[in-house]
Design a protein around this nucleic acid. Structure first.
Lengths: 120, 120
DNA sequence: CTGAATCCCCGCGGATACTG
DNA sequence: CAGTATCCGCGGGGATTCAG
């Protein structure tokens, strides 16, 4: 069953209105690289370099900014090891894993139907 | 169960790589206003003016461009009635409804956890 | 009422170079 | 290896005007 804006608003007043918390979070998640970074981290811990390679095409700047946003949101946990050479890894928090699960149907759907949409 | 990029790539080679169809479609859907427009149309037909009010904060320019993209993608169907004053309405195609269903868990999750993320 | 067209600004995001 | 700093272009997005 599909949930529409109207239905959600009947349950929760003012949800997804301009500037409200749900819009802020939605913007973070649906930011240009948001879903891809979350999906990359969905089944385990990754280092910075692995993440860069996994999320094909992302720039260092956007990876850093996306990770910072998610860290501030409590969706991603960063761990730095005091080694030389430096090693840092990223993984989803429980909340992040929960979100990734909620995103899963969308990703699966897109993967399954993208060719039909783009080609025709 | 959550599906990660790695898992999807094990099933479908080169999925969600730079410039591939799945990335194009994902960009359309997760565009700034994409999910909100789709969610607004999720449980029925809406006229242009209703859509504008429903998707709080969207400009006419972005509404038009978002709708055109989705129409070209076969996700939204536009119907114009030859009346005065003019009346146009938009509704999801079967494919669009399918997508809206896949987005539903994400929207629900965001609605439920946004406050905790922004405040807490 | 439903747009299309135009102008314009601002900031997202890419490219590159540099650092601990 | 894991970032930060800087520059800059382009397109998102607002405001306004016009049309059918």
């Amino acid at each position: 069953m599909t949930v529409s804006l109207q239905v959600m608003r009947a349950q929760q007043d003012g949800i997804f209105t301009d500037g409200c918390p749900s819009r802020v979070v939605l913007d973070h998640v649906t930011s240009k690289w948001g879903v891809l970074v979350l999906a990359a981290l969905a089944d385990g811990t990754l280092r910075w370099g692995e993440l860069r390679r996994e999320v094909d095409g992302i720039s260092e700047k956007m990876l850093a900014s996306t990770l910072k946003t998610f860290e501030a949101d409590g969706l991603v946990q960063r761990t730095a090891y005091p080694e030389v050479p430096p090693r840092v890894d990223y993984r989803l928090t429980p909340r992040g894993r929960d979100l990734a699960e909620a995103m899963s149907p969308l990703m699966t759907w897109v993967a399954a139907h993208a060719d039909a949409i783009v080609n025709g």
